[in-house]
Design a protein around this nucleic acid. Structure first.
Lengths: 165, 165
DNA sequence: TATTGTTATACTCTATAACTATA
DNA sequence: TATAGTTATAGAGTATAACAATA
């Protein structure tokens, strides 16, 4: 972050358009960077609420999927089941979520949102939405709709639950 | 990956549209997931060439930025300078890149692409492009252009070098 | 016998602190 | 005195293996 001579900020000379590089200017790389940046931004916003982004995702899945097991949660999150244990532990300690034995299969823990959890989730959604709006500020409402639709089309084959349930 | 009854694949009942959730269906989350998925896909494609995605990025920056120092590389990659050491080490051992003392400031190591590095970079670009094409298959050429342009607009404020140099 | 959830352990990745050399 | 690069070390995050309860 110094202002010395040979740093990143400077000349804009040296070579034309890094953005023209087949990798650095590619849609894929931009997508990757965008994803990482949005992730960090949301993560930071969640910190103010004492949550991680993963916590928010757990609250979200729990809110939408009735009787969701930890197993299923692990699949949805794309996370090892052993990590889900700790995740749910943390949320349960704070009464945002509780484990309920599935009566039909008592091996399963259903992860269900508490009232407190629902309340905090509302706040978290608000914060996350604000971050997103700020992030997408350069785009018009119409453009955002187009962007979401395209991302949807691209991701649907990879996230089957986007279409089905 | 079992085919039991209560798993992810099944009913498509239980609740309408996970995609309507304010978080799980948001542009930001789709962006995040898309970025991660593309990243994994490229990472895997690079493995066949004995490279990591980071390796490819180093080769790319080295190809485009003349006299790039490790410091600058670390800023561009958004990576700690201590990590860059190992990265460059690995590439230098395989003669894909070499360190040259900057004559104007002999503290600086300029990371410069070798012929071998340029060759492998070409192959890597080919592979990465193929992955990307496959990834964006659901979109028309025109849509891809629009997508790239929108990502560009969104990322420009955060990656200053996208516009300048 | 197979599966869910759990714990304990090992491994990988990343960041921190301290050092050398240049400026 | 400050900066580029390096090394060694500690920490965080993740995966692996083994176990208990249930099916």
């Amino acid at each position: 972050m110094t202002s010395d001579s040979g740093s990143v900020e400077p000349g804009a000379d040296r070579l034309g358009a890094l953005a023209d590089d087949a990798v650095l200017g590619s849609t894929g790389y931009l997508l990757l960077k965008a994803g990482v940046h949005v992730g960090h931004a949301i993560e930071q916003a969640m910190r103010d609420l004492g949550l991680s982004m993963r916590d928010l995702l757990v609250l979200s899945f729990a809110a939408v999927l009735e009787g969701m097991s930890q197993q299923e949660l692990s699949e949805r999150l794309g996370l090892d089941p052993t990590l889900v244990v700790g995740l749910v532990d943390g949320l349960e300690e704070r009464d945002l979520v509780r484990r309920e034995k599935d009566p039909d299969d008592r091996r399963r823990n259903m992860v269900v949102l508490t009232e407190e959890g629902a309340r905090l989730r509302s706040q978290a959604i608000e914060a996350a939405t604000a971050v997103q709006d700020d992030y997408l500020a350069p785009l018009s409402d119409q453009q955002r709709t187009v962007l979401r639709s395209m991302l949807f089309d691209v991701m649907s084959p990879r996230l089957p639950w986007l279409r089905s349930s």
